[in-house]
Deep mutational scan, measured.
Amino acid sequence: EVTIKANLIFANGSTQTAEFKGTFEKATSEAYAYADTLKKDNGEYTVDVADKGYTLNIKFAG
């Protein structure tokens, strides 16, 4: 089991951190699915992958 950390960075400057656990593939998939649910209210997003994929910096356009 691994932990994927998602740093969520919103257009208004606020930030939030979420963690997803499971296999690497499952946790990564859940992180992207979570970002997709936030897209409606926060706009499109870009992802900067860090720490060999264990950290995702997800920035929303607003």
Rank of each mutant, 00 (worst) to 15 (best):
A61M: 12
A11M: 09
T3H: 08
G53R: 02
L38W: 12
F10G: 02
K5D: 03
K21A: 10
A61K: 14
A33P: 00
N7Y: 13
Y54T: 06
D48P: 01
Q16H: 15
E19A: 09
D48C: 06
Y34T: 04
T28C: 04
Y34E: 02
T3D: 04
K21P: 04
A18M: 15
A35L: 12
T3V: 11
Q16I: 09
T17K: 11
F24V: 10
N12G: 08
K21Y: 15
A61D: 07
K26M: 15
T46P: 00
V2Y: 09
G43P: 01
A18L: 14
D51P: 02
Y45F: 09
T17R: 12
Y54E: 04
A11Y: 10
N42K: 10
T28S: 10
T28V: 10
T23E: 15
K59H: 13
N42A: 13
G62D: 08
G62K: 08
E19S: 13
T17M: 12
T28M: 14
A31K: 00
Y45H: 02
G43C: 03
G62L: 09
S29N: 13
F60K: 00
A33V: 07
G53H: 03
T23A: 10
A61E: 07
F10C: 03
F20I: 03
A33H: 13
D48K: 08
T15G: 07
Y54Q: 06
T46E: 10
A27F: 00
I9E: 07
A11C: 05
I4C: 02
K26G: 15
T28G: 03
A18F: 12
A11I: 11
G22Q: 03
A61G: 08
A6R: 00
E30D: 14
T55P: 01
F20R: 01
E1S: 07
Y32G: 02
E19F: 14
G43R: 02
Y34H: 09
T23H: 09
K52S: 15
K5M: 15
T17L: 12
S14E: 07
Y32P: 00
A6K: 00
T15S: 13
A50R: 14
D48S: 11
K5W: 14
D36E: 15
A6L: 11
E1H: 07
K5V: 13
A50V: 09
L8M: 12
L56H: 02
K59R: 14
A11V: 14
Y54K: 07
E19N: 14
A61Y: 14
T37D: 08
K21F: 15
K52R: 10
L56E: 00
T28H: 09
A6M: 12
L56W: 04
F24Q: 07
V47S: 06
D51G: 06
A18R: 15
S29I: 10
F20S: 01
E25W: 06
K52V: 07
A33D: 06
A33F: 10
T17C: 05
F60Q: 01
Y45M: 03
V2R: 05
T28R: 10
T37G: 10
K59L: 08
T55W: 05
N57R: 07
L56P: 00
S14Q: 14
N57D: 06
D36L: 06
T17V: 14
A35D: 00
A27I: 03
G22E: 03
Q16T: 13
Y45W: 12
A27Y: 01
T46L: 08
T55K: 06
K40A: 10
Y32A: 03
T17D: 07
T17Q: 11
K52M: 12
A27H: 00
I4T: 01
A18D: 05
A11E: 09
G13D: 07
K52I: 08
V47E: 02
F20P: 00
K21T: 14
E1I: 06
F24P: 05
A61C: 05
G62I: 07
D51V: 02
L56Q: 01
D51S: 06
Q16D: 15
G22K: 01
N7H: 14
E44L: 15
Y32N: 03
K5T: 12
T28W: 13
G43Y: 03
K40Y: 09
D41G: 10
A35P: 01
F24K: 09
I58C: 03
A31E: 00
E25H: 06
K5L: 15
A11S: 09
E19H: 13
Y45P: 02
F24I: 09
E25G: 06
K59D: 03
Y34V: 05
L8H: 02
